[in-house]
Design a binder for these strands. Structure first.
Lengths: 88, 88
DNA sequence: TAAGATTTGTGCGTATGTATT
DNA sequence: TAATACATACGCACAAATCTT
């Protein structure tokens, strides 16, 4: 369900959060074109600073899992429509 | 225009960046009371860490070339209005 | 039209840990 | 030890766009 950040892990907090969201995307918990939790939600959900939440989202974006609409939110990418992520 | 950091130089990166900004100020490229590039911009522009960008800005501030308004930005100082920089 | 909440964008201040010189 | 540099993290504040009421 809701694991917490493992500060003893060599994996930085933002990557742990990103990994969890990736699991939710791949399991279908977060559907295509549906918004992922907002930065504020991640801050409360994980008990981290906004900077950390933003890093997690940024990584998801860089990996092609999500896309962000300014002032709107960040949504799950339709992987099947991607053509330059390289590992589909 | 846009030189890169010379890591072989004895001059540390933050000083190279500061020197470049000073040139922009003295040439008028960066006008009085106009903002200098943000920390994030410097990070991307020079490919350095935020810490390095911050050091460059700090040095400019110590030299009187700029003044920082908390949570807003850093702006070019009006040299002609200075009275404690000593070399006007 | 206006107010308020929400969300991302941006910027700054600060701190810790690691590595290199 | 000290200075420098990089990566990460936490806190705070304001701007801009969106959405709701």
């Amino acid at each position: 369900m809701a694991p917490a950040i493992d500060y003893d892990s060599p994996t930085p907090p933002y990557q742990q959060i990103a990994a969890e969201i990736i699991r939710d995307i791949e399991s279908g918990t977060l559907a295509v074109d549906r918004p992922i939790p907002s930065e504020s939600a991640l801050v409360q959900r994980w008990g981290v600073a906004r900077d950390t939440a933003r890093r997690a989202v940024r990584q998801l974006r860089e990996l092609g899992y999500v896309y962000t609409v300014p002032q709107r939110g960040t949504y799950v990418t339709d992987q099947t429509a991607e053509d330059d992520q390289g590992d589909a």
